[in-house]
Structures are given as structure tokens and as C-alpha cells.
């Protein structure tokens, strides 16, 4: 016998209202637990964002001899164009540009050394797809005709990568642990709510209700509680995102970790979607699991 949608809707609404204290307890449990899960996921996402920011700043520079011929410069440029592991196109900086940059970075020291623009090396500048690909660029171009040196901030890349990787792992582990404890907590709250109504379940069994007839209103209840709770959690996660973005303002705190962790509102949408999905699934399945033992009469 199919269970009528009207019956499920009526029973769910009346049960939610009748057991409103338990409903509030379940919704709050879901909201608090999933806020913590969402916050951990948000921080993990922020760490990934910061890594991307750093990667975008990683540059490999192929320094050319100041006396390198145009043919040698072009040959290096042609080879760089064929590389799949660097973002295209690579940029060529002439004597004048590099001289101006050296003067800006080194200041008076460079001018006093008496180096002229013509004596300043020219350069090809590339951004590797992955920072670790810088090593391949160095190996390929070092010692080629017209090349003085190939440089990349390898040590810095390695330490940044290590820090980010550790941060990401920590946030994922925290999120998973919180998710498991949240699920257990939510399951337990639903179980308590159903335990309080075991007599009702036994009467339903007695008058010949099928397991699905009993289960469906409880599952719908769990789904609604999960949806409301996770909706609250998703809002809290979004508020946290706004607060972090404000704290990491690139104008007032340039270069800070929080500034590099800044994300767009759309990026948080993914985390919020995960939070809501988990809330709905844990609520629905939690109810189905919790009621199972009371159905076996």
C-alpha cells in the first residue's frame, strides 16, 4: 500500500509541533555541529586559496647574457613556448626593463656599481603551472647558449607548500572529526526523540502499519530538522566568511595570511552546499536508522 503524501505531511507537521522542544533541540544540535564542520571546511578552502595566490606569484627567470644574440634569445623563447608545464605566454624583458627593475630593487648600490643598461642581462619570465615545475625549467635551460642562469625561489616554494599542505590536512582532519561527532550527536538527539515516542510506534505496529508507513513521517521530520539546522549553520558559515574577509582586508593588511585567504561569496556557496547536504542526509538517514530498532516488534 503506498503511503499518501497528505498523510506524511499532516503527521510530520503535527509531530514537529507536538514535540517542539525536541525539534528545537535537534535543530540546534544540527546548527551548532555543522557550523563547526562548515568553519573547518571554510578554513581549508581559504588555505587552498592562499596556496593559489602564492603559486600565482612564483616566477622562473631565465637570465640571458647581456651579449646574447637575438637568435639565442628567440631560440629560448621558442623552446619556452612548447612547454606544457608553464603558463603561456612567457614574457621577455629587455635591457631597459631589467635595468629599471634592478635599480628599483637594489637602489643606489646598483647605480654605484657602474652597471649600464646595456650590461644588464635581459630575461624570460615564466609562471610554472605548479611551483614544483620550476625545477624542470631550471634543468632544461641551464647552460644553454646565451643563458647565464635560471632562477626560481625553490626553497621558499617548498616551505610555503609544506605549511599550506599541513594547514589543509589539519583543517580536513578537524572537519572530518567534527563531522563524525556531529553525526553521532544528531543521531543521538533523533534517537532520544523517537525513544520518547516508542509507544506511538508500538501502537502503529499493533494496528498493522507497515514499516514504511511508520518510517516516512519520522524521516521527513528528520529531513526538515536537518534542513533548518543546516540552513542556520550555512548562514553562520557565511557570516564567518564575511568576518574573515573584513579582517584580511588587502589594503589595511597587505600580504597577510588572511588577505591571501580571501574568497568570493560564490566560493563559500560550495561549502554551504556541503553543509546543507550533510544536514539533510544526516537528519533523514539518522531518523531511518534510529527508528529501525523500534520497528522490529
Amino acid at each position: 500500500m503506498p503511503v499518501s503524501a497528505q498523510y506524511v505531511a499532516r503527521e510530520t507537521a503535527s509531530n514537529l509541533w507536538r514535540n517542539r522542544l525536541m525539534t528545537v533541540a535537534a535543530v540546534m544540535t544540527v546548527a551548532v555541529s555543522l557550523s563547526l564542520v562548515g568553519a573547518a571546511l571554510l578554513l581549508k578552502q581559504g588555505a587552498a586559496q592562499a596556496e593559489g595566490e602564492w603559486q600565482r606569484g612564483t616566477q622562473v627567470v631565465v637570465w640571458m647574457q647581456p651579449t646574447a644574440s637575438s637568435a639565442e634569445v628567440r631560440a629560448i623563447g621558442t623552446q619556452l613556448k612548447t612547454l606544457s608545464y608553464v603558463d603561456q605566454p612567457c614574457v621577455y624583458r629587455n635591457h631597459a626593463f631589467d635595468y629599471a627593475e634592478a635599480k628599483r630593487l637594489l637602489g643606489q648600490v646598483y647605480i654605484e656599481a657602474g652597471v649600464t643598461a646595456a650590461q644588464t642581462p635581459t630575461s624570460w619570465r615564466c609562471i610554472p603551472v605548479h611551483p614544483q615545475d620550476a625545477t624542470a625549467v631550471i634543468a632544461k635551460f641551464s647552460g644553454q647558449p646565451g643563458v647565464i642562469q635560471v632562477t626560481a625561489p625553490l626553497q621558499q616554494i617548498r616551505s610555503e607548500e609544506n605549511v599550506i599542505n599541513i594547514l589543509q590536512i589539519v583543517f580536513v582532519v578537524v572537519a572530518v572529526v567534527l563531522l563524525i561527532s556531529a553525526s553521532v550527536l544528531i543521531l543521538n538527539t533523533i534517537r532520544m526523540a523517537i525513544f520518547a515516542r516508542r509507544r506511538e510506534v508500538s501502537v502503529m505496529k499493533l494496528v498493522g502499519a507497515t514499516n514504511w508507513f511508520i518510517r516516512l513521517p519520522f524521516m521527513t521530520e528528520g529531513m526538515i530538522q536537518g534542513l533548518i539546522g543546516s540552513g542556520v549553520a550555512a548562514t553562520l558559515v557565511y557570516v564567518l566568511h564575511v568576518l574573515l574577509n573584513n579582517a584580511g582586508n588587502p589594503v589595511s593588511h597587505p600580504g597577510s595570511l588572511l588577505a591571501q585567504m580571501r574568497m568570493s561569496g560564490w566560493a563559500v556557496f560550495g561549502t554551504d552546499a556541503v553543509v546543507v547536504l550533510v544536514g539533510v542526509c544526516v537528519g533523514t538517514l539518522g531518523s531511518a536508522i534510529a527508528i529501525r530498532r523500534f520497528l522490529d516488534v
Partner: peptide, 8 residues
Amino acid sequence: AFALEVIG
């Protein structure tokens, strides 16, 4: 009525 609703 519950006993009747249960059996559809």
C-alpha cells in the same frame, strides 16, 4: 480513525 488510516 488511526487504525483505518494505517491500512489506507
